[in-house]
Amino acid sequence: MAANYSDIVMDHFTNPRNVGEIPDADGVGEVGNMKCGDIMRMYLKIKDDVVEDVKFKTFGCGAAVATSSMATELIKGKPLSEVVNLTNDAVVEALGGLPPIKVHCSVLAEEAVKAALYDYYTRNNLPLPAGIEAPCDGDCAHCCGR
């Protein structure tokens, strides 16, 4: 609960950055499922191999919203060569840490970004860089630890 979240997490939860949709996005990725209680959708606008804009929509707990928000901050304006290497650890670190039980939310944020990248690369018939695979199948078991 609130007491277990860092100030940065609470800030990104109460004032999430880049919430919304990009109607003409170049890549869209959605991960998670309703049963687990977390769904993240990422929209990317890509120009000259740079993430020109990014928006997200998230159904989930405070950590799910905060990790989505932070992930968008970490990739906005960055070249794809950097973005493909985004890790959940980087999201957790930027948030000043997460309670252990919420770390899976950061994994979901990383996967949401990568799912949107996968969509971008496959839409444009571009070769997939290392680390970009078909997105999660909606089975959260591997992230949620069971």
């Binding site: 609960m1 979240y5 939860f13 109460t14 687990c36 209680g37 989930g60 707990c61 405070g62």
Partner: peptide, 21 residues
């Protein structure tokens, strides 16, 4: 989702509870 709801209500001064996972 319930936890997000509780956090935001707490932010607005309302202490409540949820049965969310």
């Amino acid at each position: 989702e319930g936890e997000a709801l509780l956090l935001m209500l707490d932010h607005e001064g309302i202490a409540a509870s949820s049965g969310s996972a």
